[in-house]
Computed example of a mutant assay.
Amino acid sequence: MRLSPVFLLSATDVAHFPTEARTHGAPEIAFLGRSNVGKSSLINALLGSKEAHVSSTPGRTRAINFFALHEGAGEKKKVKPTLIFADLPGYGYAKISKSISSEWPTFIEPYLSERETLALGICLVDTNIPPQPSDTQLIHYFQQTQRPYLVVGTKADRLSNNVLAKSLAALKQAHEIEEILPVSAKTDAGTKALWGRLMAVAE
């Protein structure tokens, strides 16, 4: 099923989050990861469009950007969205991590802990680099708050099958998790499986 994305708004404060009147209470999927993990590229690959802004400078997303995904297109588009995507600011990039970190408690943490319509957090980890403590921190946050989450390994196309298998094993061990879904925004590998998980949330 093809979903057409509509940009809703950018929020830099709890008061800016979209109201139920805007979202019709549709389940929200939050995309989180370190700056430069390929978050915007993956969102665009899933949507088949250029809704999420891809920047060559890591850490450019400083707000939570909300996109409503509707069945159908044009006049046939259903009023209630099937899903809402929330693209969250990246973290862990040295030059801007302090300013981003200072913003987390003000509006990102309340979104993750208090947002009733948040149905799934997609924690993105880069399969091309060693496990990062900041990723472990995020995954543990979801575990402690008992929020549903899925860990997705990005840029999987850059590694051979053997190297990818070793990388995924190392990431699972470091982050103390049982599953990582490898994907590639470039080749679309794994995106179909990811869509399956997202649609299960919608249902």
Rank of each mutant, 00 (worst) to 15 (best):
S4M: 09
P5L: 11
P5Y: 06
P5S: 10
L8V: 13
L9P: 01
S10F: 10
A11H: 07
V14D: 03
P18G: 08
T19A: 04
E20W: 05
P27F: 13
I29T: 03
I29S: 04
A30Q: 08
A30G: 07
A30P: 11
F31R: 02
F31L: 10
G33R: 07
S35A: 06
V37R: 02
K39P: 05
K39S: 03
K39E: 04
S40M: 05
S40D: 03
L42V: 01
L42Y: 06
N44Q: 06
A45K: 15
A45G: 06
L47A: 07
S56Q: 09
P58M: 04
P58V: 11
R60I: 05
T61L: 12
R62V: 09
N65F: 04
N65I: 10
F66W: 09
A68V: 10
A68H: 03
G72Y: 03
G72R: 10
G72S: 12
G74P: 10
G74C: 02
E75K: 11
K76A: 10
K76R: 10
K77E: 02
K77F: 06
K78L: 11
K78F: 06
V79D: 00
V79H: 02
K80N: 09
L83S: 01
L83W: 07
Y91T: 00
Y91H: 08
G92T: 06
A94I: 01
K95Q: 13
K95L: 14
K95Y: 13
K98Y: 13
K98I: 15
S99Y: 02
I100M: 09
S102Y: 08
E103G: 04
P105R: 15
I108N: 06
I108G: 08
E109P: 01
E109D: 12
P110V: 12
S113F: 07
S113P: 12
S113E: 14
L120D: 06
G121P: 07
G121H: 14
I122V: 05
C123Y: 11
C123Q: 04
C123D: 13
C123P: 10
V125I: 06
V125F: 05
T127Q: 05
N128A: 03
N128W: 15
P133T: 02
S134I: 15
Q137W: 15
Q137R: 15
Q137E: 14
F142T: 08
F142G: 02
Q144D: 08
R147H: 12
P148F: 03
K155W: 11
A156K: 09
D157T: 00
L159E: 00
L159T: 08
L159S: 10
S160I: 05
N162Y: 13
V163W: 02
A165E: 15
K166G: 07
S167N: 09
L168Y: 00
L168N: 13
A169Q: 15
L171M: 04
L171N: 12
K172W: 00
H175S: 03
H175G: 00
H175I: 08
E179H: 12
I180S: 01
I180A: 10
P182Q: 08
P182Y: 06
K186T: 09
D188M: 14
A189Q: 06
A189E: 03
G190M: 00
T191C: 02
A193D: 14
A193H: 12
A193S: 15
L194W: 15
L194T: 09
L194R: 13
W195C: 14
R197G: 07
R197N: 08
L198W: 04
L198D: 07
L198G: 01
A200D: 07
A202Q: 11
E203V: 15
